[in-house]
């Protein structure tokens, strides 16, 4: 594997019976890149991502994630990636500190590492006052920031963000993106799925899936030029509507 290619996907395919959910997709993502993975409902995004994070075995094709083969080393992939989703992130009935300790433990950090990480994280996020409050009581914007930090607790090479920022206020959303830039700047690869095309504009490159295939892949700037569109929303509509 080339050192800088953190994700390498070749003709990756997944079929369910006679339905092809993901149809021979190929792409590469580099170290420290923010990669947007877009598509309409039912285009195959979730199925593709499940294969990349090692929880669904592909039907055919090849994929290496964080240096490991998705067919033979799915467990190694899980240990070397972070994952955050809008739907499930943290335990609402555990405190901020308990959540950090729990996820640190899951990823096999030592007690000492967890103590250090916990202090660092709470300080960076300014959560000192609520460290012993239940996560369920925090505003959504704080939860998302904490959830993102927790997904990075074991210093993964890649973090997968599955529709991370729905519903939060515009300022909190930008603070969240600043955290993403910071992580990418340190060399963590960020793989994001989103329905919101304004969010796609923050990515270094984006791919757009239509009916199981990747129909476009480039920087937001070049995609806008290619499709003669004012923004990514128009690019998306042109592609998805044919």
């Amino acid at each position: 594997m080339e050192h800088n290619k953190v994700i390498q996907v070749t003709h990756l395919t997944k079929t369910f019976g006679d339905f092809t959910a993901v149809n021979a997709i190929s792409f590469e993502v580099e170290k420290g890149e923010i990669f947007g993975f877009l598509g309409a409902n039912g285009a195959g995004k979730t199925t593709a991502m499940k294969m990349l994070i090692g929880i669904s075995t592909p039907t055919s094709g090849k994929a290496r994630v964080a240096g490991f083969d998705v067919f033979t080393h799915a467990e190694d992939i899980k240990r070397n990636i972070g994952y955050m989703s809008q739907k499930f992130a943290l335990y609402d009935d555990l405190t901020v500190k308990e959540n950090i300790t729990f996820f640190g433990g899951i990823y096999g950090l030592s007690r000492k590492q967890i103590r250090e990480k916990s202090a660092l994280l709470i300080d960076e996020l300014g959560l000192e006052k609520v460290a012993h409050s239940l996560v369920g009581a925090l505003p959504l914007g704080w939860k998302q920031k904490l959830s993102f930090s927790v997904s990075l607790i074991h210093d993964p090479k890649i973090v997968f963000l599955d529709e991370p920022t729905g519903g939060v206020d515009p300022i909190a959303r930008r603070q969240f993106w600043e955290m993403i830039y910071k992580a990418a700047n340190r060399g963590t690869t960020v793989f994001v799925t989103t329905h919101y095309m304004d969010e796609a504009e923050y990515c270094d490159r984006v791919s757009i899936m239509v009916n199981g295939r990747i129909e476009a892949l480039d920087t937001p700037k070049k995609l806008k030029e290619q499709f003669k569109a004012a923004n990514m929303n128009d690019v998306f509509l042109k592609l998805a509507r044919g």
Binding site: I171, R174, E178, Y181, N185, Y202
Partner: peptide
């Protein structure tokens, strides 16, 4: 070219009023 460095530099600029990432 470097978005993260740009945000930090703008935030540190003494005359700034507001600095918000907005797509590219």
């Amino acid at each position: 070219s470097n978005m993260y460095a740009l945000i930090n530099s703008l935030k540190a600029y003494e005359h700034k009023h507001s600095v918000y990432p907005f797509g590219e």
